[in-house]
Computed example of a mutant assay.
Amino acid sequence: MNWSGSWATLHTRFRRWAENGTFERMLREAQAQADADGEVDWLVSVDTTKIHHACDALGRPLGSTVTGGNTNDCTQFTDVMAAIWVPCIGPGRPRVRPLPRLG
């Protein structure tokens, strides 16, 4: 990918994509594809920053909440887990929990 161009053009495009949901759609598509390929490992960990993440075992984000800097992760656990939303490719509702393990 060629990123040549003025910084102002790149900055404007970044802001536009952030505001119009392009980055969110890109993340959802990547999540859906990874899940369809069986690559989402549902061993969840929660990050300890102002942005509270639920990630799969490989560190890929599944859901997040944003709070003030002095908010403890343990107070956000329920909200972060409720924010997990992995769309599926094709018809069907998004997954919000792992599939049951067989055997």
Score class of each variant (00 low, 15 high):
Met1Ala: 14
Met1Val: 12
Asn2Cys: 13
Trp3Cys: 11
Trp3Lys: 12
Ser4Arg: 15
Gly5Val: 12
Trp7Phe: 10
Trp7His: 07
Ala8Tyr: 05
Ala8Lys: 08
Thr9Gln: 09
Thr9Gly: 05
Leu10Val: 07
Leu10Met: 09
Thr12Asp: 01
Thr12Ile: 02
Arg13Trp: 07
Arg13Cys: 02
Phe14Leu: 13
Phe14Tyr: 15
Arg15Tyr: 02
Arg16Val: 00
Trp17Lys: 12
Trp17Met: 11
Ala18Asp: 02
Glu19Gln: 09
Glu19His: 09
Asn20Lys: 12
Asn20His: 13
Asn20Val: 10
Asn20Gln: 10
Asn20Arg: 15
Thr22Val: 12
Phe23Thr: 06
Phe23Gly: 01
Glu24Lys: 15
Arg25Trp: 08
Arg25Phe: 04
Arg25Gln: 09
Met26Asn: 06
Met26Gln: 10
Met26Val: 15
Met26Ala: 14
Leu27Arg: 09
Arg28Phe: 15
Ala30Gln: 13
Gln31Lys: 13
Gln31Trp: 14
Ala32Trp: 10
Ala32His: 06
Ala32Met: 03
Gln33Lys: 13
Ala34Cys: 00
Ala34Tyr: 03
Asp35Ala: 03
Ala36Ser: 13
Ala36Gly: 11
Ala36Met: 14
Gly38Arg: 11
Gly38Phe: 14
Glu39Pro: 00
Asp41Ala: 14
Trp42Met: 04
Trp42Gly: 03
Leu43Phe: 12
Leu43Arg: 15
Leu43His: 15
Val44Gly: 08
Ser45Asp: 11
Ser45Arg: 11
Ser45Glu: 09
Val46Asn: 06
Asp47Val: 08
Asp47Cys: 11
Thr48Val: 14
His52Trp: 11
His53Cys: 11
Ala54Tyr: 14
Ala54Asn: 07
Asp56Arg: 07
Asp56Lys: 10
Ala57Tyr: 03
Leu58Gly: 13
Gly59Asn: 02
Arg60Asp: 05
Arg60Ser: 08
Arg60Gln: 07
Pro61Ala: 03
Pro61His: 02
Leu62Asn: 03
Ser64Tyr: 15
Thr65Ile: 14
Thr65Lys: 11
Thr65Ala: 04
Val66Pro: 00
Thr67Arg: 10
Thr67Leu: 00
Gly69Arg: 05
Gly69Val: 03
Gly69Asn: 06
Asn70Phe: 00
Asp73Pro: 05
Asp73Cys: 06
Cys74Phe: 12
Thr75Cys: 05
Thr75Lys: 12
Gln76Met: 15
Phe77Ala: 08
Thr78Asp: 14
Thr78Met: 06
Asp79Ile: 01
Asp79Leu: 10
Asp79His: 14
Val80Cys: 02
Val80Asp: 01
Met81Ile: 08
Met81Thr: 00
Met81Cys: 04
Met81His: 07
Ala82Thr: 03
Ala82Ile: 01
Ala83Lys: 07
Ala83Glu: 02
Ile84Gly: 01
Trp85Asp: 12
Trp85Leu: 06
Pro87Cys: 06
Ile89Val: 14
Gly90Thr: 06
Gly90Leu: 10
Gly90Met: 08
Pro91Cys: 08
Pro91Ile: 05
Pro91Ala: 15
Pro91Gln: 13
Pro91His: 12
Pro94Cys: 03
Pro94Val: 04
Arg95Ala: 02
Arg95Val: 04
Val96Gln: 07
Val96Tyr: 01
Arg97Glu: 14
Pro98Phe: 02
Leu99Ser: 06
Leu99Phe: 01
Leu99Gly: 08
Pro100Arg: 00
Pro100Asn: 02
Arg101Met: 08
Arg101His: 08
Leu102Phe: 09
Leu102Asn: 05
Gly103Pro: 05
